[in-house]
Simulated assay, not measured.
Amino acid sequence: MKRLKWAKQKVKWINEWENIIWSDESKFEVFGGDGKRYVWRTPQEKYNPKCLIPTFKSGQESVMIWGCFVKNKLGPLVKLEGKITANVYVKEILEKHLLPFINNLEDKENYIFQEDNAPIHTANIAKKWKEDNNIASLPWPAQSPDLNPIENLWDELERKVRNHRPLPKNQDDLWKILQEEWFKS
């Protein structure tokens, strides 16, 4: 019901969507997929290193990122490490990355920041920081990642990473490829 109410309130929006700074976190895995990997090779190529898919013996390696965009402009891509608390979110993401991005936008006072209802986003310290920095927030219905267009951007980034050659072999490779593909977009 809350999602429907939210959608009905926004149904007449046209130009307003151009002033939304869409944001989210996402996790990218070094060896993602359904576990099935196919390699086509001739019998002579059986042990050729160029025709093998690397494997790993430890747990799944991944890189957690935060990013944002507005209309037709990509914002920063930030690698998240360790436990992200509300304090870390404010100091490391909002202050160091979001604020400079907003300050470089024309008519920066007219933008509205979108984020989901994750506890780090709704914590008092985060709310106060946004208020102190005059950052308007778009109210967001709970459990609604499908409404956020950044999810499409994450899907496209995932496809580009999976099509990148060579494939990433570790977290450092993955982070480099994520940055490369993000800024190509």
Rank of each mutant, 00 (worst) to 15 (best):
G82W: 12
L178F: 04
K128R: 14
A136G: 08
I177Y: 12
S62A: 13
F101R: 05
W175E: 11
K46I: 12
N15T: 11
Q44W: 01
G33E: 07
I120Q: 14
N103K: 15
R3I: 15
D24F: 04
Y47P: 00
N152P: 02
F56V: 14
F31K: 06
E95N: 07
I102W: 00
S62D: 05
Q9W: 09
L178M: 12
W22L: 00
W40S: 09
L174I: 11
L178E: 05
W40C: 10
L4R: 15
D24Q: 10
W140F: 03
W140V: 07
P145N: 10
P49M: 13
L80S: 06
V30R: 14
K57Q: 11
I135F: 00
N48P: 02
N104E: 02
E45I: 08
S185I: 14
L80Y: 08
E18D: 07
W6H: 07
V70Q: 02
D155A: 06
E115P: 01
E156I: 13
F28K: 02
A123C: 00
L157F: 01
R3C: 09
F113I: 05
V30F: 12
A142V: 09
S23N: 03
I20D: 00
Y38P: 00
W140L: 07
K176H: 14
L105R: 11
K83S: 13
K2P: 06
D146M: 02
N104I: 00
C68V: 01
W154A: 04
M1S: 13
R3Q: 13
W182F: 02
N103S: 07
F56D: 09
E180L: 14
P141L: 06
N163R: 01
K46G: 01
P149M: 06
K73A: 09
V90N: 06
S58P: 00
V78S: 05
P149A: 06
E25G: 00
N117Y: 05
E16D: 01
K27P: 07
T85L: 12
I120L: 15
A118C: 12
L178Y: 00
I84T: 15
L77Q: 03
V78C: 09
K50W: 08
W140C: 05
I21Y: 05
I125Y: 01
K10S: 02
E131A: 13
F183E: 12
I53K: 04
Q171F: 04
W66M: 11
L94P: 08
K27Q: 10
L77K: 03
V39L: 08
I20Y: 04
R165A: 01
F69Y: 09
E109Y: 03
N87M: 13
